[in-house]
């Protein structure tokens, strides 16, 4: 091997190693930032993990929203008809958050069964339902009709 070729080979190997490390790190980051979605029925059935971030979505249960008088803490329940999960959030809720509205929240499920939301998303279009919520509601409806 001529010295020139050797130099090229070394450069190529360095580039490949760099690429490998980059891809590895990237995929690792990807893995750690994946958030799964669970419907309230899944959570009630114990399918969701504790203390790991995930997303939950459903309708805000009528009459369940309780605001703290002195802080910005809010608790409410999300439901898909098959189960209902208490959610706690501290901060300012989005404009379209209200009872009966479909929302998606991300955060972690505590051992006490209360979902601590880090972020609550409601959509900006009246007719719009987050796809996950729509699917969860449809799945629940289907399950019920099978039971009947």
């Amino acid at each position: 091997m001529t010295p020139k070729r050797k130099k090229k080979l070394v450069l190529l190997l360095i580039a490949l190693a760099g690429l490998g490390i980059a891809v590895g790190l990237g995929l690792n980051a990807f893995n750690q930032n994946i958030m799964f979605f669970f419907s309230p029925a899944d959570v009630v059935a114990g399918k969701a993990p504790y203390e790991r971030k995930f997303r939950i979505g459903g309708l805000v249960e009528e009459g369940s929203v309780q605001r703290d008088q002195q802080t910005l803490r809010v608790t409410f329940k999300v439901t898909d008809g098959g189960g209902s999960v208490a959610v706690q959030y501290e901060g300012i809720l989005p404009d379209l958050f209200r009872e009966g509205q479909g929302i998606v929240a991300n955060g972690t499920l505590g051992r006490d069964g209360v979902f601590q939301a880090a972020e609550v998303l409601a959509k900006h279009d009246e007719n719009y339902m987050p796809p996950e919520v729509a699917d969860a509601l449809a799945a629940q409806k289907a399950a019920e009709s099978v039971k009947n």
Partner: peptide, 10 residues
């Protein structure tokens, strides 16, 4: 195969 989302940190 399930519903996931990828967070901003990624």
């Amino acid at each position: 195969l399930g519903k996931i989302s990828v967070g901003p940190p990624y």
